[in-house]
Every structure is written in C-alpha cells, then in structure tokens.
Amino acid sequence: MFCKDPIYTPKYATLIATFTALCLAVGKLIVGIMSGSVAVLASAIDSLLDVGISVFNFFALKKSEKPANSKFNYGLGKLESLAATFEGFVIALSGMYILYTSCVKFISSHTIENLHYSVGVMIVSFCVTFCLVWYLQKVAHKTNSQVIKADVMHYKVDLLSNGAVLCSLVVISISGFDKLDAILGIAIAVYIMISAFKLIRESVLLLLDRAIDPHIFARVQEVLENAPITSYHALRSRLVGNIIFIDVHLVFHAEITLLEAHRICNTIEEQIRALDTSLVWEINAHLDPYDDSEFDVILQRT
C-alpha cells in the first residue's frame, strides 16, 4: 500500500493476479470439458472465482487508499478486511460446489478422456501459480496488505490443489482408476473450506479492532518502560491493513515544562515507529501530570 516501487503495490498485484487467473481459468475450463475430469473442472471454477475476487479486491484497495475525510475520519482502510471476508465466503462456496460435484462423480461412473491434455494444462497451471504465489508473498511482505495476504493464502491453496490434481491424473493414466479423480476432488473441497474458515476468522477479528501481534505490543511496552517518564497507562492498539493505531497516556512529573514533555513524547513516538518501518504508525499520546489513580486522590483532598 505504501510501497515506492509500483510493481510491488497491492493494486498492481491484484491486476496481475486477475490476468493470471483469467488465463488459467479459460485453459482449464476448455480442457476440463474436453476430458470430463471433475478435478480439472473444479480447478477451472476456482480460477474463475479468482478472477471475480481479484477484480473486487482491486476496487476495494483503490477505495481503501483514499485519505480520511469528514465522513470517514479514520479513512477506509477496513475495506481491505471486508474484501478479505467476502473472499473467504466465496472460497467456502466454491469448496461446497466442488464437494457436491465430486460426490456426484464418485457415485456415478465416469471416464476421463484426452488425459494428456489434462496433465499438460495442470503442469502449466502449477508452474504459473507457483510464480504468482512467490510474487504475491513479496508484495505482502513489503506492504502488509490484508487483501494481498488473503490472496497469498488463496493461491497457496490453488497451488496445492493443482499439484494434487496433477499427481492424481498421472496415477489415473498409469492405473486406470478413474474414481481417484472424484476422491481427490472431495479432498480438495474439504481443504478449501477449512482455509476459507481461517481467512474469514482472521478478517472478522480485524474488523472487530483486534489488538496488534503480542510480540510487537511487547516491544512497544519495552520502549515505554525505558522512556524518561514516570509511568504510562491506558495503552491500546488496533490494526487496519498495514496501519497500527496506538493510544497511550504518558505520565510526567508535575513540574516538567510542556515543551520538555512534548520533546520526550516525540522521541518515544520515533522509537516506536522504528520498531518496524514497513508499517504505518498512528500514535495518539495523552500527556498526564499524574497517574489517574493519583489524580483521583488529589481531587478528593481539594
């Protein structure tokens, strides 16, 4: 999201993913219809869904990057999590459809024709998907985009399913056991639905303002504990895309000047931001002359 190199921006990545998924979907759909392989057809349907998801993600990212305004004071960063949640539900639905189709194929007798075409298209699909996952992982590492992380998980599932389909087709060509195609389709469907549940869960937690990762939170606490302040309290955090929001109350000696307290506060904020420069930090520090409990005692005495 905040990457200087255009090729590693989330929007550019979604365009590449869209074009790649479209090409793979068309190729697998043609071969799947020709061969009658339920596993290849299931993979084709999954790729078609990838196209729709990637287009949706592109517009979600475009909207989420718009600056804050009078209506949305904190920006539209949560659109990324909404897009990822939507993607998870679509993946789950595709898994259910693949499961249904595979069960029907398993019960009924079917023979795979033009097996060499199916093997060829799955080899190409596996290699292309591998390259796409590598690229998306690099973008996710540079930007920490929730949508791209969801895409990485999604295409890793595709990579595994493509590899499994390829292996099954090779086994079928050797053994002639056509029902392995349907059995593998069932296994892929179950794996897809489990992955979708994990993705939905992670996205919903972000929509509910889940706190940042414990190890990053502990490092923030370490900075505060080593700072030249009396104490701190009301430390809170939440994550939106690659933006970390931190709220904290910093307690200073009552005699300190406002200028000096402000200088120390700026230093603390710089140290926190230096913990991970790939993230965007929004820090809201409130300066207190007393701890809240001490202040209550002072008010009772006056």
Score class of each variant (00 low, 15 high):
residue 218 A to T: 11
residue 187 A to L: 15
residue 188 I to C: 06
residue 33 I to D: 07
residue 194 I to V: 12
residue 217 F to T: 11
residue 185 G to T: 06
residue 27 G to W: 06
residue 113 E to F: 14
residue 70 S to C: 08
residue 81 S to G: 02
residue 32 G to K: 03
residue 253 H to S: 15
residue 222 E to K: 15
residue 3 C to M: 15
residue 35 S to F: 03
residue 246 I to M: 05
residue 272 I to A: 03
residue 121 V to L: 09
residue 214 P to F: 10
residue 199 L to C: 05
residue 34 M to E: 07
residue 169 L to G: 01
residue 123 I to W: 02
residue 108 S to V: 09
residue 286 H to A: 09
residue 122 M to T: 11
residue 32 G to V: 04
residue 113 E to T: 12
residue 76 L to Y: 15
residue 225 E to G: 08
residue 278 S to C: 14
residue 123 I to V: 14
residue 276 D to T: 11
residue 200 I to K: 00
residue 251 V to A: 10
residue 116 H to E: 12
residue 142 K to G: 00
residue 3 C to F: 14
residue 8 Y to Q: 07
residue 298 I to A: 12
residue 149 K to L: 04
residue 161 S to F: 06
residue 260 E to Q: 14
residue 222 E to N: 15
residue 302 T to H: 15
residue 43 S to V: 02
residue 230 T to Y: 09
residue 288 D to S: 11
residue 171 V to P: 04
residue 210 R to F: 06
residue 264 I to G: 08
residue 300 Q to V: 07
residue 79 L to S: 07
residue 185 G to F: 05
residue 120 G to H: 05
residue 118 S to I: 04
residue 93 L to D: 04
residue 249 H to R: 13
residue 207 L to D: 01
residue 243 I to S: 13
residue 265 C to W: 08
residue 171 V to A: 14
residue 110 H to V: 04
residue 2 F to T: 13
residue 153 M to I: 07
residue 193 M to K: 07
residue 232 Y to V: 09
residue 119 V to H: 01
residue 115 L to W: 04
residue 65 E to Y: 11
residue 118 S to E: 01
residue 107 I to S: 10
